[in-house]
Amino acid sequence: MNAQRIFDRARADTQPPLCYPPYTSTAKRAPLEPLIPIPPTALELGSPLVPLHTCPALCDLTQAGRAPPLGERIIVSGHVTDEDGKPLVGVLIELWQANAAGRYKHLHDTHDAPIDPHFEGSGAVVTDADGAYRFITIKPGAYPWRNHPNAWRPAHLHFSVFGACLLTRLVTQMYFPGDPLLAHDPIFMSIANRAARERLVAPLDWSLTVPEFGLGYRFDIVLGGRSGTPGEQA
């Protein structure tokens, strides 16, 4: 099945470049030689035998501690599809984030904001038969980083998504609408195409919002790959 799928080279401006000087860590970490174009082989097209363990289609990050975490409870939900809009079923999504105060539960996070003992900040789900997933969590806080003087990251959730094969692997970040920090964030702004970067901003969605419980944000994810007819194949 996968062998029939076509994986296009992304339009250059809809994905971030490797070297983006405003994001200063790219200077010494992004390769300087051009990438070597190769055709996909069985290795890049084979289905991954990913150890899924037992991930449900819903993950509630507010239930991981002995008491509810502090912060604004939210619902984040969406569908994972391919470029043809076909739902991708059984896709593993991993999520991690800072707490409501903007602090990660990580040894190397030295930001002077409180750790919430009731919030780990990690979750994992597998998409259901419609390609849908749903997380319940808290809205993360903005936090400072040392990229440039007075640099602050907008609130964001980290997403890691597995698709049909290596070529569909995606790690990205989801942002919140109306955040004034977005225009100042070199990681977000590294995507030159405005529409492409705004697709990482999850709109408020009333159909996902649960009355008296939490606001819902919709984050749909499109992984690379489309069906091809044999005549279209390179």
Partner: peptide, 17 residues
């Protein structure tokens, strides 16, 4: 055709997830 979601860095704290 639907546009493929853009990638972002994994960041320094990925071990959490």
């Amino acid at each position: 055709r639907m546009p493929v979601t853009a990638a972002q860095t994994v960041g320094p704290f990925f071990s959490i997830g």
